[in-house]
Each structure stands twice: as C-alpha cells, then as structure tokens.
Amino acid sequence: MTDMIKTNDRTITLEILRYNPESDEAPTFGTFEIPYVEDWSLLDALEYIKDEMDSSLSYRWSCRMAVCGSCGMVINGKPQLGCETFLRSYYPEKMRIEPLANFPIERDLVVDSSDFIKKLESVKPYIIDAVDATKAAPKKKQPEKTSTGVYKQKPAELGLYKQFSMCINCMLCYSACPQMGLNPLFTGPAALALGHRYNLDNRDQGADERTEVIQDKNGVWSCTFVGYCSEVCPKNVDPAAAINQNKAQGAQDWALSFLMPRKGDK
C-alpha cells in the first residue's frame, strides 16, 4: 500500500463529521488531506486516516463488498455505502462525509441503530408457520411439503418477494426518508418492506400478526411516497413500492371491514 501511495503526489480532501460525546458539545467537521489513489473506496480512505493520521476516527465496517450493510454514511449529502463509493467519482473535488441522518450519533460516523432494530423486530421479519405448530387450518393455501418437511416453492412464488428479501439492513433508506425526520415514530422503509416480504411468501402464515404494525398510522400511512428510499437502496429493493402495495391492501381491508364486520373478531 505504501508503494502505491509513494508513486503519486496527488491528494484529495475529506471533510468528516467528528463527534465525541464525552468531550464535544456539538459535532464539527474535521479536514483530512490524504493521498489520492484511483482504486480506493471511501472505506479504504477512512482506513488510511485511522491507521496513519488519527486513530480516534470511528466508523463501522465489515465486509467491504456491499453485503453486510455496516458502512452506510452520508457522502456529499447522499446516503451511500462507504465500500462502494470511490474517491475517483469525486476527485479532484473534496468529499464531505457525515453519519446517517435521522439517527442519534454515537461517535463520529457511528450511529445508534437500536430504534431501527426495535422497528425491524416489530414487523416479525421471519416465517411464521403457525399452522405447523398448532395444527390449525391454514388461512391461505399452503405450498406442498416434501417428505423431509421442506416446502416446495415455484420460481414465480419466489419472484413475488425476492427483491424485498435482498435488504441488508444498511439503513440508507432511513437516512433518505424525509418522513423519518418529521415523524421518528414512523416504522420506516426497510422494516415495512421486510414485513411485506414475509407476507408475500407462500410458506408464511403470519400476515395477520403483522397487520397492526404495518397498517398503523405510524406504519405505511405515515409515508407520503417521496420514493427517495428506493433510489438510495444499494441492493435495488423498492421499499416505496412495498409500502404502496400495503396501502392498497389496507384500503381494501378497510372497506371489507364494513361489509364483513366480524371477520377479524373470530
């Protein structure tokens, strides 16, 4: 790495939001001038700063290949993953790096995601196979099980939910969503899209258990369909579509609740 740095004398400036709750009153920008290496991602640059310039710089990272969803940050105003954002896309302009918006800052680029985790848990993002456990009659037609107890699923049935299952919980959509800033109680794009993913899965019987959260005022109805969540998603999930599909379903259920008032009470 040092050889590579020695052979060029070009530099790029990084402005990074710094905040240490133990000593700072408010976050301030720190400026770092680092060697410009064409094939460096922003994450490589942050590693260089931590190793060579300021070991107190804090940020989250793990896989370096857009799979783990740890290194989400706001780069020149846009929520992006540090590992798939390259210095060459910005050079010779400077880059301004901030932690994800709409989250409390824990330190530097590290945000407190506990509220997101709570919201994620609230939509029960796992297959609920209550029929298996209680031997009750399935509410929707169940797919065939093989002799080893595994469900068969056709490609078309997989296709229904596959895009929503690509979510890596990187929280870029929470940073992008203007509603998250206006109403912190909003369940948010990723959690709603994941709830939708399990509702669409034909092995799942848990849609009723998710309805209360998804159809709540702070669920899909808090969304005003700005659509920036889908735009920033690094895995091409379309949370805005998931939310709107749930609004349509909710409107239908709302109308049906008058025609069949006892449907939900049994």
């Binding site: 309805t211 209360e212 709540d216 005022k217 109805w221 349509a248 909710g250 409107a251 709302w254 939900g264």
Partner: peptide, 17 residues
C-alpha cells in the same frame, strides 16, 4: 384482518381515485 383505527385508508383511496 383487524379494522384500522384511523380513516387514512379511506382518504388515501379517494386520493387514488
């Protein structure tokens, strides 16, 4: 399905229409 406790679904349907 339990009945939602707000009329947003109705307003949204009218908005859609």
């Amino acid at each position: 399905m339990s009945k939602p406790k707000h009329i947003e679904p109705l307003l949204w349907s009218l908005f859609g229409a």
